[in-house]
């Protein structure tokens, strides 16, 4: 009997303290930290863009924005996780164009339309980059050599992702044939390019230091105009190819997130991208701030999705 009461007392103590641990009911959104899923590892390009963004965003929504790197399976693990998250505005999804590609390549079932757009944040123009161990000084020499040796020039790429699509678009526009080799992520591609194990790859202006040191050559940039920081790099348009290819990064939330919550986030986002410190951070990332509000971002996503579907079909990579 005595032992029984000891147990009871213990249980009662446990329960009462458990009760004390629980917090009062929900208040105005956001009343606790917000998680932002970045579907790639820490230190990658996407991570480097959204970490400064999160710092600005939390100033304007009044709660910490915590980056959660959910890497793996070409970014689709993070996409699945974001889709499955509660639609309460406490899970944001930092996304880029890969979401369209992985869907059409049949890698994942998650589509851009499984989410509500909040805003477009930044766009990073792709740059066709050659190893210094190749003889080509410019596009004309590269194109001439590639014509002579179809299917022999190696291009490092994450298969079915932006780094694959971009060179493939050039391939089509210039009527060339490259040989693609699987290299997931910019860091391994740079390593292979420096060592001359691949000839070409897609990179961006963050690699400028290696170009200045003569280890890499920028062949062409896929933006509308030349970049003021790297004025020597010609655009693909100047070279006669109608290709503008920028990796567009934005924020989305799971479908069904209440409209007031979305409005709050959109407002915070609009203010965050206007911060001068954010502009400075993006400049260092070889990226331009490219804000679009939710409505325009939705249109943009629909347009990009259609374009990607066409490209994937042309390349024979489409599964759906």
């Amino acid at each position: 009997m005595a032992r029984m009461s000891v147990k009871m007392a213990g249980a009662a103590a446990l329960i009462s303290v458990l009760g004390a641990l629980s917090a009062p009911a929900m208040a105005q959104y956001p009343d606790r930290p917000v998680k932002m899923i970045v579907p790639w590892a820490a230190g990658g390009d996407t991570d480097n863009i959204f970490r400064p963004f999160a710092v600005e965003l939390q100033k304007h929504i009044g709660q910490p924005v915590v980056i959660a790197n959910v890497g793996g399976a070409s970014g689709t693990t993070g996409a699945r996780e974001a889709k499955a998250a509660a639609a309460d505005g406490y899970t944001l999804y930092a996304v880029h164009d890969y979401i369209h590609l992985t869907f059409y390549a049949g890698i994942s079932d998650v589509k851009y339309s499984d989410f509500e757009p909040i805003c477009l944040v930044a766009a990073t123009p792709s740059v066709l980059t050659a190893s210094s161990k190749t003889p080509w000084k410019n596009w004309a020499e590269l194109a001439e050599d590639a014509k002579k040796r179809p299917g022999e020039i190696t291009v490092g790429a994450t298969l079915g992702s932006t780094s694959h699509i971009f060179p493939a678009m050039i391939e089509k526009a210039a009527n060339l044939k490259f040989k693609f080799v699987s290299y997931d992520g910019l860091a391994p591609r740079m390593n292979a390019l420096l060592g001359g194990h691949i000839n070409l790859t897609d990179s961006n202006l963050t690699q400028k230091g290696k170009v200045e040191a003569g280890l890499l050559r920028y062949i062409a940039i896929a933006s509308e105009k030349r970049d003021p920081e790297s004025p020597d790099v010609p655009t693909l348009k100047e070279l006669g190819m109608n290709i503008v290819y920028e990796v567009a990064r934005g924020v989305m939330v799971p479908k069904g997130t209440p409209a007031p919550v979305r409005a709050k986030l959109e407002e915070g986002c609009a203010k965050a991208v206007k911060e001068p410190s954010f502009a400075q951070a993006m400049k260092l990332q070889g990226t331009r701030v490219a804000y679009l509000n939710a409505t325009d971002y939705a249109k943009f996503l629909a347009k990009i999705d259609g374009e990607n579907k066409v490209v994937m079909t042309d390349l024979g990579l489409i599964k759906k």
């Binding site: 230190g43 740079m190 400028k208 230091g209």
Partner: peptide, 28 residues
């Protein structure tokens, strides 16, 4: 030597350099 991160920790270090405008690479 090259501004290429070999693992997640050095990738984060590189990110910190970029944020401060330090150009990584062979000339670093």
């Amino acid at each position: 030597a090259f501004g290429i991160p070999g693992d997640a920790v050095t990738a984060v270090m590189l990110g910190a350099m970029t944020i401060h405008g330090i150009q990584s690479g062979p000339l670093f």
